[in-house]
């Protein structure tokens, strides 16, 4: 029993990790390619979730909801990039932090204006809202397995995109020398808009996928945003591979930490104290992980240069 529970928690960690990856992929690309700290990335997560809830309500189809989350967030990304973000590339990090902080306020209040202060619910279709039995007598939620599958699929797609396609080569080139690639005739402005919109769309999709498990509400993006930052710092800024490894590491550490640490402390303290200390430390565990990584490897696990 104990073993099945552990595997189940591990799968939960994987599911959490793959979602974090969807969120972090855009963040790390935008950060690596354009040198932009985008605090408003969490807003696209929220916008995607709201978009999915809205269109799933209208059409009655969950999959249309998911697809529209991707499209709605992508559109929001394009508009934001053209109106605001474009002006920030040449400014210093401090201005970027402030301006995108302001964007959070605008997006959050804007959504509250449109949809009201109450959370929306996005229902998982019945055929996914079930459990499947896996080998070794493990029973696990179908929907969460689907999330893991989507996450891995997108990771694979992004890997192909960044390493095998022309767009990926241009992105990489832009990361290294943005002047040279514009001299070579690549429209760097459009390239940046595409990268930004792709990142926003992925964040929107992950918002919709998670919004179906939790609830769709204003402010849902910010806690995830902070986690995504932890992921890309651990993985190394600008690296998709780093984001993937970092996301899984953070997802599994957080989930298993909450599960195992109280058990571990039970060896030393009585039950109540162990639960208290264990869960307190578990809630900090990923930040401790990040601090340790930064102390020993100041540019992250797969980071090449310090930004």
């Amino acid at each position: 029993m104990e073993f099945q529970l552990l595997i189940e928690q591990l799968l939960n960690g994987l599911q959490f990790g793959t979602m974090l990856f969807l969120m972090s992929a855009g963040l790390t690309l935008v950060f690596g390619v354009m040198g932009l700290i985008n605090l408003a990335h969490g807003s696209f997560y929220m916008i995607g979730a709201f978009g999915a809830a809205l269109f799933a309500e209208i059409t009655g189809s969950f999959s249309i909801g998911l697809i529209s989350s991707f499209i709605v967030a992508m559109f929001a990304g394009v508009i934001t990039e053209i109106l605001v973000i474009r002006k920030l590339y040449k400014k210093d990090h401090l201005d970027q932090v402030l301006a995108t902080f302001a964007l959070i306020l605008i997006f959050s209040e804007g959504i509250r204006w449109l949809f009201g202060a109450y959370p929306l619910y996005l229902n998982i279709p019945a055929e996914l809202n079930a459990s499947v039995s896996l080998p070794l007598e493990i029973i696990y939620s179908k929907y969460r397995l689907l999330i893991i599958a989507i996450g891995i699929l997108i990771a694979f797609f992004l890997y192909i995109l960044t390493s095998k396609t022309l767009l990926g080569i241009r992105i990489k080139a832009g990361q290294n020398d943005r002047e040279m690639i514009s001299v070579l005739g690549v429209n760097i402005k459009t390239l940046y808009t595409i990268v930004f919109a792709l990142g926003a769309a992925l964040a929107g999709l992950s918002g919709a996928l998670i919004g179906a498990i939790q609830s769709v509400e204003v402010g849902m993006g910010e806690p995830v945003l902070i986690l995504a930052f932890v992921v890309i710092i651990i993985g190394g800024i600008g690296s998709i591979k780093g984001a993937f490894v970092g996301a899984l590491l953070v997802g599994v550490t957080d989930t298993l930490g909450r599960f195992l640490l109280p058990e571990l402390f039970k060896l030393f303290f009585d039950n109540a104290d162990a639960n208290l200390i264990g869960s307190s430390i578990a809630s900090m565990s990923i930040y401790i992980l990040m601090a340790i990584v930064l102390i020993f490897k100041p540019s992250g696990l797969f980071g090449e240069r310090s930004a």
Partner: peptide, 27 residues
């Protein structure tokens, strides 16, 4: 610990430490 890093990493590690305290105070 934070001053071992610079730039973006400094911004993020100071944030991480504050978040540790935040979650600690909640739990």
């Amino acid at each position: 610990f934070s001053l071992r890093t610079t730039g973006v990493y400094f911004i993020m590690i100071t944030l991480a430490f504050a978040q540790m305290l935040y979650y600690f105070s909640i739990s």
